[in-house]
Amino acid sequence: MPIETRAPGARPGARLAVVEVTRRRPHAPEYHAYVQTLNERVVAEARRAGWSAERLAADDLGVDALLAATRDADAVVVVGGEDLAPHHYGAPAGYPGEGRHLEVADAAQLAVVRRAVRLGTPLLGICRGHQVINVALGGTLVQHLDDEAGLHRGTGSVEQLMTDHEVDLVADTRLREALVRSSALVRSAHHQAVGLLGEGLRVAAWSRDGEVEAVEHVTAPVTGVQWHPEDRGAEAWQLPLLLGQLAARGASARRAA
């Protein structure tokens, strides 16, 4: 039975930058339309929690413009999308399930994550965003997962491939404290996963087949989840609590300052 809890709200006027990959995918209209529903839900839920939320497209802006646009953000969410180009984590191209890479978006999102860690800006990564956190800090990715357990799928319609499965939250992590439970039923559709951890990161959740499902920085207020709390089929408590963690970490940083 879900544990009833109330997510912390954002302070009045707090600005949330929701950083997506691109606002244009003419080559993949069905995929793009579904990604839009996910990103729109992040913005809508954030606004309900009191954030002034804005969507920013990394591939459209590039490194300098995205850094400028997020400079004054109180918190950042890096959402899902295409695979990162493999040279960012020292791996070859040509892996199973490899799709189109957006190099400008990669560079811009990696830069935003690195600055958030350096400055202590609260940041949440979702799916690709979770992987961006790891790669930004020198970690690697598992390039393609098999589907023997039915948890990882990489081809076909994203909506049809969304899979419900359990994750175990690691004790004594901020994520477990924020979600107020030791395990959760989550929804995901991905064919890659975090491999070697980036510098300063620790695992915050595992899937039942042993893949990393969440990470968090040991000192900076940066968390990544492989699953999609913003999917319309996800349990409704997940996204508010994750956004609430951003608000709480931002409040802690202001008190410390």
Rank of each mutant, 00 (worst) to 15 (best):
P2N: 09
I3K: 13
E4G: 09
R6F: 01
A7G: 14
G9W: 06
G9L: 11
G9R: 15
A10G: 09
P12H: 02
L16K: 05
V19C: 15
R25G: 08
H32R: 11
Y34A: 13
N39H: 07
E40Y: 02
R41T: 14
V42A: 02
V42Y: 02
V43Q: 12
A44R: 15
A46C: 07
W51Y: 13
R55P: 15
A57P: 15
A58H: 06
A58L: 10
G62M: 10
D64M: 11
L66A: 13
A69V: 01
D72T: 13
V76M: 05
V79W: 05
V79H: 05
L84H: 03
A85E: 14
P86Q: 09
Y89I: 11
P96R: 00
P96S: 13
E98G: 03
V112W: 06
R115E: 07
P122C: 14
R128T: 03
R128Y: 01
R128F: 01
Q131E: 04
T140H: 06
Q143L: 00
D146K: 02
G156C: 10
L161K: 14
M162L: 14
E166M: 01
R174Q: 07
E177I: 04
L179W: 01
L185V: 00
L185C: 00
V186C: 01
R187D: 01
H191G: 01
V194G: 09
V194R: 04
L197V: 05
L197I: 04
G198W: 02
V203Q: 09
W206Q: 01
W206I: 02
V215S: 03
V218T: 14
V218N: 11
T219C: 06
V225K: 03
V225W: 00
D231I: 08
R232V: 12
E235M: 03
A236I: 10
A236G: 04
P240R: 00
L242D: 04
G244C: 05
L246W: 06
L246T: 04
L246K: 06
A247H: 11
R255I: 14
R255W: 07
